[in-house]
């Protein structure tokens, strides 16, 4: 069959063949291993749920009178003389402990203004002569959509900071040549009857690559 003459040293060539065969099997085995490696699932990682979109919201917490007007929403809350009588300031009543009694028509109001909630006289800010406006203690009348003037009559340094942009929320453009910045008003963040910002739920904290129990609270 083979026309070539059989060479001497046949045992040597068969040893080479044995080597080559062995290497082939070895390489194929390695190839199999590599291929299996690329297909195997990646190491298990703790599942991190996507963050709730409520934490990405940039809309303010509250709507002011001006926002309600702009959005053409229900303004019946501001229609004072739908219930009250003109030129007859409603009386303010206090209980035995000197705490203000909120009439049931205004049950949604929680009073908590000032240290020990002592700024509880409605007419400190509301105008008893015309309930549809507010008043500064020096007698100036203020409309519901211009409250920084009213708030700033007591909170002077805060108004000064707000005017300079150091207090309050801003969005839009820092470069006023390229676009407008939107400023929020006092009542967008603070409830005038209870201005302290209430505690809230924090967004989830960081997850590490290899999730472990968080380190113990540092001693303090």
């Amino acid at each position: 069959m083979d026309p070539r003459p059989t060479r001497p040293g046949n045992s040597k060539s068969s040893r080479t063949n044995l080597w080559l065969g062995g290497l082939t099997v070895g390489f194929l085995g390695l190839a199999g291993l590599f291929l299996a490696g690329t297909r195997s699932p990646r190491p298990a990682r703790a599942d991190i749920p996507p963050v709730d979109k409520k934490f990405l919201e940039t809309t303010p917490w509250r709507q002011t009178y001006a926002d309600l007007v702009k959005a053409k929403e229900d303004l019946s809350d501001y229609d004072c003389y739908g219930c009250h009588e003109k030129n007859k300031p409603p009386p303010i009543r206090f209980d035995d402990k000197g705490k203000i009694i909120i009439p049931k028509e205004h049950a949604n109001i929680v009073m908590g203004h000032g240290s020990h909630d002592r700024n509880d006289l409605c007419y400190n800010c509301h105008n008893e002569q015309n309930l549809e406006t507010l008043q500064v203690r020096d007698g100036r009348q203020v409309k519901f959509d211009n409250i920084p003037l009213l708030c700033g009559s007591c909170h002077g340094p805060t108004l000064r900071d707000w005017d300079a942009g150091a207090h309050g929320r801003t969005s839009g453009f820092w470069d006023r040549k390229l676009g407008e910045a939107q400023r929020l008003s006092c009542a967008n963040c603070h409830n005038p009857h209870s201005p302290r910002i209430p505690p809230r739920e924090p967004a989830p904290g960081p997850h590490t690559l290899h999730e472990t129990t968080p380190p113990a609270q540092p001693g303090h």
């Binding site: 917490w61 929320r169 801003t170 969005s171 839009g172 820092w174 040549k177 676009g179 963040c189 809230r200």
Partner: peptide, 12 residues
Amino acid sequence: GKYPACLEVCPV
């Protein structure tokens, strides 16, 4: 010319 995202979302 815009503000950063962390600033715009800050509720306080």
